[in-house]
Design a protein around this nucleic acid. Sequence first.
DNA 1: AGAGACATACCGACAGGTCTGTTTATCCGC
DNA 2: GCGGATAAACAGACCTGTCGGTATGTCTCT
Lengths: 215, 215
Amino acid sequence: MKGKPRDRLVETALRLFCRHGFHATGIDTILAEAGVAKMTLYNHFASKEALILATLRRRDAEFRGWFVREVESRSRSPRGRLAAVFDVIADWCARPGFYGCMFINASAEFHRRDDPIHVVAAENKRAVTRYLRSLAEAAGARDPKSLAEQLTVLVEGAIVLSHVYGGTAPVRRAAAAARPILEAAFGPARRSLRTRIKTPQTVRRAPRKRARPAA
Amino acid sequence: MKGKPRDRLVETALRLFCRHGFHATGIDTILAEAGVAKMTLYNHFASKEALILATLRRRDAEFRGWFVREVESRSRSPRGRLAAVFDVIADWCARPGFYGCMFINASAEFHRRDDPIHVVAAENKRAVTRYLRSLAEAAGARDPKSLAEQLTVLVEGAIVLSHVYGGTAPVRRAAAAARPILEAAFGPARRSLRTRIKTPQTVRRAPRKRARPAA
DNA sequence: AGAGACATACCGACAGGTCTGTTTATCCGC
DNA sequence: GCGGATAAACAGACCTGTCGGTATGTCTCT
């Protein structure tokens, strides 16, 4: 086994929680798969909930880092980056092991709004919106806050429906829906990205070598 | 206890599943709360999963019936009804006991796409889209299918974010995002509903006497 | 020597599900 | 209208497996 036990735990838990859900994944399964003793887990984490929180935070950092990198590698202009958001989401949803957004799933399983797990999940969504807002501001949108929140609604809807149905059709619908919104926020697009063309092939572009979050 | 045991079971399960989730709700809890013997449950349902499926189907019928009734009570024109969709969603999300969409939560907890529970949840989403499409067709939209799917993305995103954050702000954002989409599909709105006004008060209108789904 | 990871046995609680036996309600021939 | 048959719902003990979490003791690295 490579790496420190704590890291192995979080990585294994991340994978299993994504694949099977939080309640459905028992501690013993995680321990066996990570090759870690039970007492080692409880030396690092107070409880299963603490482990869940740690994996969510890890996933948050990992996902957002990846997301921002992806978006910013596809366009240099803030305006273009806003449009590219849906391409990145489409690539994500098209992955073979795509089991939906871990944070949405977490807030679905722990859906009391004051549950610490729910709170962490919400923080991820807020952070994504903040990022979109910073893009909108850089792009000179008329109302960056409103634009970012509207795009967030589209993104979340696209993720949920992609998960429920499979495939990336909902993401393309979201991209199509975003177009008039972006145009209203900026005036007509000067040069919009491949979101313009709606054939499926354009969504999954040439393979790119990039680190990708686990699910 | 009133009603047949089977109905009591489904109703109680519906309530508890909505409130605490599927995995987190044990059958003993359901039995105790419904006042039903264990063997009675297993005479009616083969397993807990069968009970979950039954509650989902019940919820599907109940919710869609309510939704259509609400939408159609708010406007007589198909165009107006499409705009009213977000008002109905806002009212729903503003309920005190709102714990998100049961079907989204179900597909989050049982997220293998071939899981029977996931399949039933997906069917609900498809049915809602079909309804929106029928409205779009009746309203003479340019591309009813596309319009319905775009609106569905907005609706799902609004529901998820309302659940994650609490409050109906995301629904208002979704309604705002829908406006240019609807205008593009029909030409400028002739008379749009209260979605036009964005102050919070307008979303929660005067209390109305109507059957409402449990959560 | 001491810290940390190891393995394993163990704990009470509860999961979903089965079995037994009793009570209650419904229906039918009389 | 009534008595008995039949089916359904009842209560509750019981099963195996697993849950999250603890305790004990050994081994392996600095």
